[in-house]
Amino acid sequence: MKTSRYRWVILGVATFTQAAASFFVQGIGAMSVHLRRDLELNTTQLGLLQSAAQLLPLAGLLVVGRLLDRHDERWVVGIGALVVAVALAAGGAAPGYASLLVVLLIAGAGYSAIQPGGSKSVASWFDASQRGLAMGIRQAGLPLGGVLAASALPVLATAFGWRSTLVAGAFVALSGAVAFMAFYRRPPDRPSMPATSRVRLELLREPYMKKIILSGTSMVSVHGGVGVLTVLYLHEVTSMDSASAALVYVAVQCAGALGRICLAAWSDRHRSGRYACVTTCLAAVIIGMTVLTTPIGRSPVAACLVFIWLGFFGIGWYGPWVAYAAESAPPDHTGFALGLAMAVNQVAVILAPSVLGLLTDLTGSFAPAWALLAALTAVTLTTTARL
């Protein structure tokens, strides 16, 4: 039954697998200074590294969504994490930038299974009274992976070179795969999976799906911008040394993990529903991005506080968002609906880091990137309020 204590084991292993599979990619931002120096990259090329890991999930999430409606999450998620591990292990021999892009493309294909698969596994074990909190804890795995990566990978890159960070990422991803396949079980009261299930692209016409997609695309763009530009901004604009900037990035990821838990738990009790919590995050991001475009944002102290604020809301939004998405979908199409929403999000996930990096290179300033994210978020807030 869903009140079984084993649901907390499921939550723990799903969170760990999420953190393990996202470990390396979430650490790219923290290694931005090292990668730019060692591979002689500009900001656009650095953004493309983030985008490469998200390209194949554009189609992979839809495929995985269908698989999750037909097959056990245990094997879908476990095999996906294994693909991430194998790709990163091979990347330890990458000769340069181009091969690193290929490695991240393959790792991204494996990662396609982690987000929707882990989300569905947690949603199926927890009822509505605790689903937001559970989803928030599970989704905190992403920034927690970022915290660990930001703490460890720059140190490894300094001591042993950037290739060593891929090998470390492979071992971490492998541990996540083994843990999920060893401990995951389907809830005993869940009905058998249907042999066939009709694809429902008409879900895109539903008002709730429009809210999910619009808010998702704008906020993953914010997350991508914070991920790829935070350390560079602190280093180049506020004159902070790279080690201190990486520590701030750790704090940003910690704030994101805390936000995912707190905001999702709040959504369990919010009288206006879970989407009201997402709306709060949209408004908070607009404020933070606007401050970064002003002279206040050039102060090291102020910038650090703003990035932590953006970490809490600009990363923390995902907890209530994914709970809202899982609950809004038809019961027999939860996997496909999650995969569909996340696949549409992938367009922004792919484009945002490289576009923001290119905009920064072309203008010689970070302000246009922050202004673009603020404007995109403001349009989303206004539009979804009318749906």
Rank of each mutant, 00 (worst) to 15 (best):
F336W: 09
T165A: 12
S32I: 00
R138K: 12
V199E: 00
V355N: 06
W162I: 12
P154H: 08
I137C: 06
L387H: 10
E73P: 14
D241A: 08
T43S: 10
T293W: 09
C277V: 15
A245P: 02
T230C: 05
A245Y: 07
G311D: 07
L39S: 05
L174S: 07
A109Q: 01
V84C: 04
S242E: 03
E236P: 06
A276W: 02
M289G: 11
A245M: 08
I212M: 15
A170L: 09
G161C: 10
Y6R: 15
L381P: 06
E206H: 15
G132L: 06
A371I: 05
A352K: 03
T363Q: 09
A177R: 12
A255H: 02
D241F: 13
G259C: 10
W162T: 07
I213G: 05
L68I: 10
G314H: 00
A182Q: 07
I79T: 10
A374P: 02
L376A: 15
A251Q: 04
I213T: 13
G161E: 01
G216K: 08
G224E: 00
V250C: 14
T165F: 10
V83Y: 05
Q139P: 11
Q45D: 07
V322P: 06
G65E: 11
A173L: 07
A246W: 12
C277E: 10
G132D: 04
L203F: 13
K211I: 14
W321L: 15
V347A: 08
L203D: 12
V355Y: 13
A264C: 11
N42T: 05
G29D: 06
A94T: 03
P194I: 01
Q50Y: 14
G311V: 10
T377K: 08
T383R: 14
S299R: 08
Q253S: 07
G339Q: 08
V13Q: 00
I287A: 14
G319V: 10
P295T: 13
D268H: 04
T280V: 14
L387I: 15
I315Y: 12
L144V: 06
D127K: 08
A85C: 13
V228K: 03
Y184V: 01
L292F: 11
S192P: 06
S121A: 15
A170S: 11
E202M: 04
A152M: 12
L166D: 09
T43G: 04
A85Q: 07
Y6H: 14
S112T: 00
V220K: 00
T380C: 15
K120Q: 11
A157D: 00
F126G: 01
P191V: 05
A385N: 12
L232W: 01
D38F: 04
L387F: 13
Q54G: 00
A371N: 08
P188R: 07
A109S: 02
L229R: 00
A21D: 03
C277I: 13
V220F: 02
P320Y: 06
L310D: 09
N345R: 14
W8P: 14
S32Q: 01
T334K: 15
G259W: 03
G339W: 09
Q50H: 10
T165D: 01
T3S: 15
R198V: 14
H270S: 05
L381W: 04
A375K: 02
M219C: 04
M31L: 15
D361C: 06
R386A: 13
G176H: 03
Q346A: 03
F126N: 00
G141T: 04
R163I: 06
I261F: 13
L376T: 14
G216P: 03
P57E: 09
V63F: 13
H333L: 09
L148S: 05
G65K: 02
